[in-house]
């Protein structure tokens, strides 16, 4: 059990670090690189740098709302 927790923790840390590195590269460093540089092949256009986080945030919020709603429904049923 403890090993699984450790693995999940390592996975979470690595995911967050990789997202942070990629996004930093995308948003902060890429505008200062020439647009015909080969590194631009590995990144989507700049518009997606707004669209992807916004959609991810909306999806996260809706998932949380659905979860809270389900929990409330369940607790109501238990009470009745």
């Amino acid at each position: 059990m403890e090993l699984a927790d450790r693995a999940v923790g390592l996975l979470l840390s690595s995911i967050s670090l990789s997202i942070f590195t990629y996004y930093t590269f995308w948003v902060i460093i890429l505008p200062f690189v020439d647009s015909d540089h080969f590194i631009h092949k590995y990144f989507l256009p700049q518009d997606y740098a707004i669209l992807v986080p916004v959609f991810a945030g909306i999806a996260l919020l809706s998932l949380i709302s659905v979860f809270i709603g389900m929990v409330m429904l369940k607790s109501k049923k238990k009470k009745a």
Partner: peptide
Amino acid sequence: VVSLGCYGLLMVGVGLM
């Protein structure tokens, strides 16, 4: 906002580890 989320996720991961 994205870096704040990454920080939170990193803290959760480190705390789990």
